[in-house]
């Protein structure tokens, strides 16, 4: 779901597929912070797949609004 207007939790604001240096596709996430600032992070295909699964998302747009903690939990639990 989209972030609330006064929500201080960093959330995923945008998810795009981008070409990686090694010829693979990567997922570029833009994170919006509570103070209005934003930053981008890149996930490889395996991490992106896990994130989609954990968020129950079947499309990239469904990642929008997910809180950063969820992203972190997904990644911390992955054992690869």
């Amino acid at each position: 779901m989209p972030a609330e207007p006064h929500d201080a939790t960093p959330r995923i604001e945008r998810a795009l597929v981008a070409p990686g240096h090694d010829g693979s596709a990567e997922l570029l996430l833009r994170i919006r912070y509570g103070d209005g600032s934003s930053d981008s992070v890149t996930l490889d295909a395996a991490a992106a797949e896990r994130l989609l699964d954990q968020c129950g998302a079947t499309a990239l747009e469904q990642l929008v609004g997910q809180p950063w903690r969820r992203l972190l939990n997904v990644l911390e639990q992955s054992g690869d």
Binding site: P10, Y33, V41, T42, D44, R69, L75, E76, D80
Partner: peptide, 15 residues
């Protein structure tokens, strides 16, 4: 700190 440094969780070894 962790919320500002998600890039360290998006690669191996995570975090």
């Amino acid at each position: 700190l962790q919320s500002w440094n998600l890039h360290l969780f998006l690669r191996q070894p995570r975090g």
